[in-house]
């Protein structure tokens, strides 16, 4: 397995000798900066399969690393660390620890689908980003992202009633993320909106927020969807061996607990 590209040149891998004389020549400081050699041993050979088991990740194996995804990426243009091509590479070679260095930004994919449009191999990189963000959460590497909390709030309303109501989504999302609803810019926007909207529409929107729009006769669809979602989630837990991991974690905790008790 090759040692990976640029990533040896990170600040923590650079060694600089402040006082170093070799053969009578002073090469201190800048002139004696070396890259520490390193051998990677902690591959997770199952990583690609695990990502492929989650919705969106199915076609990751097709990637031939052309970089069209990163080149076209909306988020990459504002944050160069957001690099789908690179993450797909890391997943395919199983370099989990390297992938985890970027764990806090992967969820920021905005689903613009420019990558999927540009990809010559039908990898659906947008789906891979969603699967990877999901994987990080399921494995406990990151808490649920704000995006996932939003998706859950939204989906729960759709599954329950067949429809959504925007005010309710906004309130539910801010509650889930523990943020105050009174964001100054939201208040500013609401003020401008209320000043303009006709009273009848405001009353209608207010009522919708309380009464909730619903699709009638939805309960059959609701139950069938919920049943399917539960089945899929169980399959995903199995594919990621989450229950086994929980057991292992319990075993590992025990000796420590005993020591603490003594």
């Amino acid at each position: 397995m090759p040692i990976h590209e640029e990533h040896l040149i990170r600040p923590e891998n650079l060694k600089t000798h402040e006082d170093l004389v070799i053969d009578g020549i002073d090469v201190s400081g800048h002139w004696s900066t070396f890259i520490e050699s390193r051998v990677v041993t902690d591959y997770n050979e199952a990583l690609e399969e695990e990502i492929a088991a989650l919705p969106g990740g199915e076609f990751i194996h097709r990637c031939w690393q052309c970089g069209s995804c990163t080149n076209s990426c909306t988020v990459n243009a504002i944050n160069p660390d957001f690099n789908p091509r690179y993450w797909i590479y890391l997943i395919r070679v199983g370099m989990e620890s390297e992938l985890l260095r970027d764990k806090d930004i992967i969820w920021q994919c905005v689903s613009c689908n420019k990558c999927t449009y540009a990809c010559p191999r039908d990898v659906v990189p947008e789906g891979v980003m969603k699967a990877t963000a999901h994987w990080l959460e399921l494995k406990g590497h990151t808490p649920k992202s704000p995006s996932m909390l939003f998706d859950e709030e939204f989906s729960e309303q759709v599954i329950e009633t067949g429809k959504i109501e925007e005010g309710r989504i906004i309130r539910g999302f801010f509650k889930r993320t523990g943020q105050p609803l009174m964001q100054d810019w939201l208040v500013e926007m609401a003020k401008r909106l209320v000043a303009k909207l006709p009273v009848t529409l405001l009353v209608k929107m207010g009522l919708a927020s309380v009464l909730r729009p619903r699709t009638s006769g939805w309960s059959g669809a609701r139950d069938a969807i919920q049943e399917y979602v539960d089945e899929k989630q169980a399959e995903q837990r199995k594919a990621l061996r989450l229950d086994e991991l929980v057991e292992i974690a319990k075993q590992e905790v025990k000796p420590g607990q005993q020591a603490a008790a003594e």
Partner: peptide, 18 residues
């Protein structure tokens, strides 16, 4: 008649087939 939400950009992240 009696339409429902299409899932927008959110439901697919829970499950695309829903």
């Amino acid at each position: 008649n009696n339409w429902n939400c299409c899932g927008a950009m959110e439901v697919k992240n829970i499950d695309p087939k829903i």
